[in-house]
Amino acid sequence: MNAQPQLLHTREAFYRRDRRSVHLAREFTREALADWTAVIRTDDVLLCVSELATNALLHGVPPGRGFRLHLALDSAGVLRIEVHDSGPGEIHAPEPSPEPSPEAEGGRGLLLVAALADKWGVGERDPGKIVWCEFEVRG
Rank of each mutant, 00 (worst) to 15 (best):
A76V: 08
G77K: 05
G77E: 10
L79Q: 06
L79P: 03
R80S: 14
I81P: 00
I81M: 00
E82F: 00
E82N: 03
V83F: 00
H84V: 07
H84A: 01
D85P: 05
D85E: 09
D85Y: 02
S86V: 06
G87N: 07
P88A: 08
G89L: 10
G89T: 08
I91K: 13
H92Y: 11
H92M: 11
A93E: 14
E95L: 12
E95M: 07
E95F: 09
P96H: 01
S97A: 04
P98L: 06
P98C: 00
P98D: 09
P100H: 04
P100S: 10
P102W: 07
P102I: 02
P102L: 07
E103S: 14
A104T: 04
E105A: 09
E105N: 02
G106H: 07
G107I: 01
G107R: 10
G107C: 11
L110F: 15
L112S: 09
V113N: 04
V113I: 14
V113S: 08
V113C: 10
A114G: 08
A114C: 05
A114E: 15
A115C: 01
A115W: 01
A115S: 12
A117N: 04
A117V: 03
D118L: 03
D118T: 11
K119Y: 06
K119E: 13
W120Y: 09
V122K: 02
G123D: 15
G123S: 13
E124T: 04
R125A: 09
D126K: 13
D126N: 14
P127L: 08
P127Y: 07
G128N: 12
G128H: 14
K129L: 13
K129I: 08
I130K: 10
W132A: 02
W132E: 06
C133N: 02
E134D: 07
F135V: 04
F135E: 01
F135Y: 10
E136Q: 10
R138I: 15
G139R: 15
G139T: 15
G139C: 15
